[in-house]
Design a protein around this nucleic acid. Structure first.
Lengths: 340, 340
DNA sequence: CTGAAAGCGCTTACAG
DNA sequence: CTGAAAGCGCTTACAG
């Protein structure tokens, strides 16, 4: 049924109303289940709208309601290692509420960031989620005085804002305790650069579980570093560890490869645990890596629901929310491997 | 300067006009550099708008102009290996035109796809880019009769549409010819599942360069397969190759690792080339992988500019556009290594 | 050069 | 129960 008439445009509520023989206001009420409309009229309008494939213009609606059902996701994470899972969580949480997400990848370019923020604000986003790849760095844009709510994820937020991040200490504890429980007692920690907040958090937790004799090796977030660390440890004169807790999966991968090349069996001789649970690395390692998952998708979900709450004026407590990590057990750590 | 008056909302053109002592229409013309307005008035209005941080409401503009300066990117690529670079290209190309991008990750869920498409259409996107991870599969949504232009990237499009993909054959030729030119003549091709169109394209190109005696091994897109393929080749009775052209970087990585474990030096004894130039894999391999780059960002740029052209009613020729690949030379292939 | 008016597509009091 | 009117923020003919 083509009720759009001669006009070239899409079917509007005007067309629907005309076809149903009612006024525009009645059509609106019928379609939105508001106001007082007879059941019969309501159903007729709905049927006609359905047949015509009527789709209400969100621009017009937004103009009235001051809500665009749109939010912006700002990120400087190029690789997408953090962004994609986060995005998925946000999107999943918000699609049910009719909210769509603008993705703005801004690298570390303040000018580009500014342009994207302007564009989003002109488009009347209901809120912004700012996401990064490390919790102790800010994005290169000042979001402190945009006229919409902002939620931060994995990046440092403004003082009085809501910020989501994983609980690095708890995640590290999970890993180290697992090693200890499975009978490993000489655990070393090979991790990234010490100036990362997460690195210090994880190292601190490692030390608190292991006690005084812990050994932490700081380096780069790269396979090569994991490899080198193993060389260094096994060619040194200190006692050999029976397990390595790594700061990320790439380091763990490098370590596992280096161990294999030395004829050291994983997990029989040495257990290895990574961090990030980055499927593409963790699952392809031989043997596949046990790793700490930061639950980025869940983090995204919560961040999404939180901007939504703020956009709707519901009260949200400011502060940093640390979300628990989860240990994903694969074959790279030995001992009893109690579960899974 | 706060000119927004007592109203709780944002500064509107009404506020600006009032503060400048002109009518709304004059303010509009002044701000948009249209119509006949005295230089003095124009500048005063602009200055006042600037001071007040006036930001035109894109919803209102879109309602009039029938253009939302918004497009949708639909993708079923969860890992983001393809999506993120593509997205970056699209975004870069369009940000200059004031266009923002909705990202919709739909997995392979038709219902979710439908919901996202509906949401985008309600929001009056000017166009849609449908992207996937293989050119011989369609997304789980029917885009053939949406009322806005659609461009396909890395996924199979409707018959009469514009589709972008890399030139797999040319990319493969680049790799194989490089090996041959650098003095390698016993090249084998270890690649993914034969039912991928790209796999057949690349294998075909490989054969056309190598001639009759080519050997193609089909398998999985995984490191384990690259590893296994090397075992198989080197434990078989056929002649040993002096180079391996792999269907992707993960396979190449597996192959390089397997070669090293056998004491075969890369690139001295055997050259290896990958495909995808996936930084995270290619750069971390020891030695780093020479690889074929599909130029996804450029592909994104072109796809973006093309939807834009279509949205503006400019003529665009339908059909499949194959974009050339580029060989990124790292240390995994030996011989003369003429350049870079 | 400037402004009043109409209108984009919709919703929401307010009358009837 | 139904509809005419006003209005969201802006642009664009059209008068003056």
């Amino acid at each position: 049924m083509n009720i759009a008439g001669g006009k070239r445009g899409r079917t509007t509520i005007h067309d629907v109303a005309a076809a149903a023989g009612v006024s525009i206001s009645t059509a609106s009420k019928a379609l939105n289940d508001t106001g007082r409309v007879s059941v019969e009229t309501r159903e007729r309008v709905k049927r006609i709208a359905g047949e015509a494939g009527f789709r209400p213009n969100a621009l017009a609606r937004g103009l009235l309601s001051k809500r665009s059902f749109t939010i912006g996701l700002l990120t400087n994470d190029t690789y997408g290692r953090f962004t994609l899972p986060l995005m998925q969580g946000i999107s999943e949480a918000l699609v049910d509420h009719g909210v769509s997400v603008f993705l703005c990848a801004i690298e570390d370019d303040p000018a580009l960031g500014q342009i994207h923020v302007e564009a989003m604000l002109e488009k009347q986003v209901d809120g912004i989620i700012a996401s990064g790849k490390r919790v102790d760095r800010q994005l290169p844009v000042d979001l402190s005085k945009v006229p919409v709510p902002v939620v931060y994820a994995f990046t440092e937020g403004a003082p009085d804002s809501v910020t989501f991040r994983s609980d690095d200490a708890q995640g590290a504890r999970l890993a180290v305790e697992w090693l200890v429980k499975s009978g490993r007692h000489r655990v070393v920690h090979v991790t990234g650069p010490e100036d990362f907040f997460s690195v210090r958090e994880r190292a601190g937790a490692y030390r608190s579980v292991i006690g005084g004799e812990g050994l932490v090796l700081y380096g780069q977030w790269a396979e090569a570093w994991g490899h080198e660390a193993v060389q260094r440890i096994w060619s040194g004169q200190t006692g050999r560890p029976d397990s390595i807790f790594c700061g990320n999966d790439q380091i763990a991968r490098g370590a596992v490869d280096a161990l294999r090349e030395r004829g050291i069996r994983v997990p029989e001789d040495v257990s290895v645990i990574g961090f990030d649970n980055w499927e593409i690395v963790a699952a392809q390692t031989r043997p596949p890596l046990t790793s700490v998952d930061m639950e980025l998708k869940e983090l995204g979900r919560q961040a999404g629901l939180t901007v939504l709450a703020l956009a709707e004026g519901r009260p949200v407590e400011a502060g940093v929310r640390k979300l628990p990590c989860r240990l994903v057990v694969r074959q790279s750590c030995g001992g009893e491997n109690p579960t899974e």
